[in-house]
């Protein structure tokens, strides 16, 4: 039913939205595309899954997931941003992603693992729509995180420094922004988002594999470009729209049509408006 699919789309899209924001933060502030971000999300999902399977609580799983993802993000910051030469950074993130994926396969195999989400039968009914506990939690987390991020970016000192670095790196350095600190914190923040998104992925898909984060990452990148790099707001909106489009494609066209609308859409944007919907218009030109 249509409205239920919209809701499902929003849930799926929230995951894309959050991950897209994490991509755009690192890209906007540090001018770096972290191709290992999908694999970092997977780490979060796998760790949370392990904790839940071992009987741990959801908050514990969330906490562990976030911790692991932040740690991995800092690893990426060190080995893929700080050490390598500028034009080789993207390649190191590719290698890092490969390393991580193989670590997961080594530790967990390549089979799908059941994600023990919330088992409450609690549900809210609004007209024809039904929201179960998991969905309510997911929407709540998304909303809370987006509000928190928005406040952080707009109102905090850190947010101001991020924006300064994103606008003009040299001017930021000259006006006293501690670039090293902002870099590490931005990566940590993207790791936090990935950790939360990883848990969400487990709840949405009810199972995780070593490859879960990869596809989510691809689509989050699409959302980032369509929304406009440098615009967390754009990334968020685009992510949700993408989720809705995907669910509707599957619902009305069939399962095999899952991806076929999304990627051509991106290519259209790259062709006509690379700066995205809300982008700042500052796109590198060949």
């Amino acid at each position: 039913m249509f409205s239920q699919q919209i809701v499902n789309g929003i849930l799926l899209g929230s995951m894309y939205a959050l991950l897209a924001i994490s991509y755009t933060l690192v890209l906007g502030v540090l001018n770096m595309l972290n191709l290992a971000q999908g694999e970092i999300l997977t780490a979060g999902a796998l760790v949370a899954c392990a904790i839940l399977s071992a009987g741990g609580s959801m908050p514990a799983a969330l906490f562990a997931s976030v911790l692991v993802c932040i740690a991995l993000s800092l690893l990426v910051e060190f080995f893929c941003l700080r050490l390598p030469r500028g034009d080789t950074q993207v390649v190191t993130t590719i290698a890092m992603g490969m390393i991580l994926q193989n670590v997961y396969t080594g530790l967990w195999g390549s089979e799908s693992i059941k994600f023990r989400g919330l088992s409450s039968g609690f549900a809210i009914r609004i007209s024809t729509l039904e929201f179960n506990a998991t969905q309510i939690l997911l929407l709540a987390i998304t909303a809370a995180l987006m509000i928190a991020l928005s406040l952080l970016i707009d109102r905090s000192r850190f947010g101001r420094e991020m924006r300064a670095l994103s606008d003009n790196r040299t001017a930021a350095r000259v006006s006293g922004v501690n670039i090293g600190r902002v870099t590490v914190l931005t990566f940590a923040l993207s790791g936090l988002i990935a950790g939360i998104s990883g848990v969400m992925a487990g709840m949405v898909f009810t199972s995780v594999t070593a490859f879960t984060g990869g596809t989510i990452g691809d689509k989050a990148m699409v959302a980032m470009v369509i929304g406009g790099t440098g615009s967390a707001f754009g990334a968020g909106i685009a992510g949700i729209i993408l989720g809705i489009v995907e669910i509707l494609s599957v619902g009305y066209l069939g399962a095999e049509y899952r991806e076929i609308v999304v990627f051509p859409l991106l290519i259209l944007f790259l062709w006509l408006r690379p700066s995205g919907i809300f982008g700042k218009g500052r796109v590198e030109r060949a």
């Binding site: 595309l33 993207v90 980032m224 790259l270 590198e284 030109r285 060949a286």
Partner: peptide, 8 residues
Amino acid sequence: LKGTYLVI
């Protein structure tokens, strides 16, 4: 497109 955008 250059750099990041070409990659994506």
